[in-house]
Amino acid sequence: MESKVSKTKVSVVTPVYNAEKYLRKTIDSVINQTIGFENIEYLLIDDCSTDSSRDILFKEGNV
């Protein structure tokens, strides 16, 4: 009997605070890992950024 446990192999948590300059590169780096994005749980946590980091997160989240 196959278990219903998630098949996620890696969880990645990225805290974000005024990181607009590096955020897209960081996100792309995680997405393009060789284990495949389907094996990654990716959490990006914004800590009240005052730059456009939040806008980038919402835009990237709609991929």
Score class of each variant (00 low, 15 high):
D46V: 06
S29V: 00
E2L: 08
K25P: 03
C48N: 14
E2Q: 08
D28F: 13
Y17M: 08
I31L: 15
C48A: 12
A19K: 01
D46E: 08
L43I: 15
D46N: 15
K25Y: 15
I27E: 01
I31N: 11
I27L: 12
S6C: 10
D46H: 07
E2G: 11
I45C: 08
Y42M: 03
T26N: 11
S29T: 02
D47G: 08
G36A: 12
I45V: 15
I27T: 02
K7H: 04
S29D: 02
L44W: 03
A19R: 00
D28E: 11
V13A: 04
S11M: 05
D51I: 07
T26H: 09
F37D: 11
Y42P: 03
E20G: 06
S11G: 02
E38M: 07
I45P: 05
N32F: 14
D28I: 02
K4R: 04
S11Q: 07
T34D: 14
V16A: 03
T50K: 00
G36L: 07
K7N: 13
R24F: 02
V10M: 10
K9H: 02
D46Y: 08
E2K: 09
R24E: 10
V12S: 04
Y22I: 01
T14G: 03
C48Y: 08
V13I: 13
K25G: 09
K21C: 02
I31C: 05
K9Y: 00
M1A: 08
R24N: 10
T50R: 13
T14L: 14
Y17T: 09
T8W: 00
S49V: 04
S49P: 10
I31V: 12
S29M: 11
G36W: 01
G36I: 02
T14E: 07
I35N: 14
E2M: 03
E20I: 04
C48V: 08
S11I: 12
V30T: 05
V13L: 11
E20V: 06
M1P: 04
D46Q: 08
K7E: 13
L43E: 10
L23P: 06
M1S: 08
L44E: 15
A19M: 13
D51N: 09
A19W: 03
R24T: 10
L44S: 13
I31Q: 11
V13H: 03
G36M: 07
S6V: 05
V13F: 01
L44T: 12
I40H: 14
